[in-house]
Write a protein that binds this DNA or RNA. Structure first.
Lengths: 110, 110
DNA sequence: ATGTAATATTACCGTATAGTTATGAAGTAA
DNA sequence: TTACTTCATAACTATACGGTAATATTACAT
């Protein structure tokens, strides 16, 4: 991140944007177990088929998932394992913050 | 990212959201050199003072930057070094994309 | 060819947010 | 006090985006 110009910053920003929807994160989370088709993802996520399809299409466009149609089904799988590293990092951050708040909270409540 | 519930997914999503604006990334990028006040950040980023302030306020709210006022100036600095790891990961991913032409690719990987 | 299932896409609505302009608040110096 | 500097915060506009419902497309079966 040393000398990114405006063009590069937009790329990075757009990549992050793919990870700003809980539904998309849920889909990525689900795909950790292996490929799933749209019906399965729709059921697991609890969303509507149209909505899940839209999100999948977006994730595919950003090359976070791979698309492969077999018969009338379309199977999606993770294209980029490193996305989980991103989430781990963020979760770590959030975890640190929450535990810190808990400690502070403890000082006032204990 | 093994068993994140809906609540956790929203936290993660919101964290990523802070990184989806080129202007905010530029600010974070600039702060790698050390703390800067709003005037400096405004000049470097090329934005308006109001806009930069708004973004800084958002970054501070998400605890990505620290705020310290000295006199009439307000100095911001990185609160969470790990944000650069995130960016490195994303840049690496983008750099790996085959479809991108060489000179742009160089920006992400160099 | 007709019908059915799985997925994608379109059109629409509501909301969220980035940017701008103008104003407000806080500190400092005369 | 008044004036000036620095930063924050409205209020507003425009645009982007998520969700839904309806429709289109694709593949397969009968």
């Amino acid at each position: 991140m040393s000398k990114l110009d405006d063009r590069a910053l937009e790329y990075v920003a757009k990549y992050f944007k793919a990870l700003t929807e809980p539904m998309r994160l849920k889909v990525l989370n689900t795909l950790q177990d292996g490929e799933k088709n749209v019906s399965q993802l729709t059921e697991i996520s609890g969303g509507t088929q149209a909505n899940v399809s839209k999100h999948l299409s977006m994730l595919a466009q950003h090359e976070l998932v791979k698309r492969e149609s077999r018969g009338t089904n379309v199977y999606y799988s993770i294209a980029d394992q490193s996305v989980y590293e991103l989430c781990e990092l963020v979760c770590g951050q959030i975890g640190n913050r929450m535990s810190m708040n808990a400690d502070i909270k403890k000082m006032f409540t204990a």
